[in-house]
Amino acid sequence: MAESYFPIMVILLLSAFIGVAIVALSTLLGRNRPSEVKLMPYECGMDPIGDARRRFSVRFFLTGMLFIIFDIEIIFLYPWAIIYDKLMFFGFVEMLIFVAILAVGLAHVWKKGALEWE
């Protein structure tokens, strides 16, 4: 079984090499003439106000949390889907219950306004 992963290792090494090679080539071939204005963060030509390490909307965190919850729930669906032809009726009823719980969770999140971006 392990040897079937040999090509994966080859493709991993080769594509990592390609990635590193392109970055290195670009650094080597490009010329380098820095100037004071060029070294400022780009802000449409204005002098930047403050730096970029600042507060941002909590909605992004909420989306991340929703992703974790739903993705973990969906992980349980993968093994179910693959042996569905053996589980049949039992599997279907089990999944109805599982998806119902998922739907309740989604409805709760929706009602609490976690999906709204105001």
Binding site: P41, A52, R53
Partner: peptide, 21 residues
């Protein structure tokens, strides 16, 4: 370390995570 980049990166993360599901 640029404000536009930060916003773009946050949007990209939220969008890609959501649609991954």
């Amino acid at each position: 370390g640029n404000k536009y980049s930060l916003l773009g990166g946050l949007r990209a993360a939220a969008q890609m995570l959501s649609y991954e599901v």
